[in-house]
Amino acid sequence: MGTFHDNKHALHGITVVVETDGGETLVGRCDDMDDTRVILLDADVHQATEDGPSKEDYLARASRFGVWPKHRRLVVARSNVTAVRRLGELSS
């Protein structure tokens, strides 16, 4: 799946969508993941607002073109994560 780093999660190097219980959706390159945290590189964060794009619209564009990296490195507590999936799986 990802690159062959024995000490990293299988999703290492893969662009993923991370959904959280707080309603944030993060897209970034997975560096590592374990029972306690998910580490993303070159990540963007979407939070639904009244005047911004919906989560569906955000992910539709992300799946077509990718995202603008707003954060060089983000660490998300695994306890807040409700889903992790590959962004490539969303592509049409």
């Binding site: 799946m1 990802g2 190097g13 893969i14 662009t15 799946s63 077509r64 073109f65 990718g66 590959r86 962004l87 490539g88 592509s91």
Partner: peptide, 11 residues
């Protein structure tokens, strides 16, 4: 047409 990295990864 644009094929970004995430649509190449793992394929």
């Amino acid at each position: 047409f644009f094929l970004p990295r995430h649509r190449i990864e793992g394929r």
